[in-house]
Design a protein around this nucleic acid. Structure first.
Lengths: 119, 119
DNA sequence: CAAATGATTTGATGACTGTCAACATAGAGG
DNA sequence: CCTCTATGTTGACAGTCATCAAATCATTTG
């Protein structure tokens, strides 16, 4: 199994099709599963904070060592970063000793589109 | 305890202060708790579907009986609607025999603001 | 190679959550 | 008052999750 640019789930493909605002038309059962998974990834305070720390970084990327002081152990930080990556919200890349995480392209726009107003 | 226009949590007050985009500056521990609770409310497929059904309704409101066929039992629907209300995303009002739910004002805009792009 | 540093994985545990059946409440209409 | 319909509440249970300690993997450096 590769360890570079570790793959995300199919959420990026999700982005390309389900960007209809939530209030535009009723969600199908299948779509609601995928979108709920996205929100779920951001439904934990620690994960949300990690995500924000990365997103707020100039360049939109950060080394784990730069963001891991969020009040939980380092393995727990790693666990949350993995969840965010598996949800398609982050991507990771190893450079020498360090692993860098960045916000997956298009993710913020897709989520904002889901919540945009219709009226 | 009153049963009309059942009160929501302090999430509507949350909306008024924490609308800085996630990627603008790092979230504080306190803010991340409140915002995560918001995402958590939408992190379940059934809840997301109920929310979408209500939001997609002309007028932005729906009677429980109109939206409860989402594949789970009626008590479970009631349980999820309560969660959404407690999270500040929905408001409810009884009219005769029926209870109507509507999207809390400002909620969609606040969440969209959180996810808006900075660059 | 050996030691040190940065990060992930594994295993265990306590807490939380979605679900349903059964019961309770509220209003409408006989 | 009684019954019927529409919702909400309680209690129980199985599954999921966040967390940490310990072990492991990856890279750099002595």
């Amino acid at each position: 199994m590769s360890n570079l640019a570790l793959g995300s789930t199919d959420l990026n493909t999700t982005m390309t099709w389900c960007c209809q605002p939530l209030g535009k038309e009723e969600l199908s059962a299948a779509d609601s599963e995928k979108i709920a998974a996205m929100f779920k990834a951001l439904s934990d305070p620690v994960r949300l904070r990690l995500f924000s720390r990365i997103a707020a970084r100039p360049g939109g990327e950060a080394c784990v060592c730069d963001i891991q002081d969020v009040g939980v152990s380092q393995p727990t930080v790693s666990h949350h970063l993995r969840k965010l990556r598996e949800a398609g919200l982050l991507e990771s890349e190893r450079r020498a000793s360090w692993v860098y995480y960045c916000v997956a392209p298009g993710v913020l726009a897709a989520m904002a589109g889901l919540l945009s107003q219709t009226s």
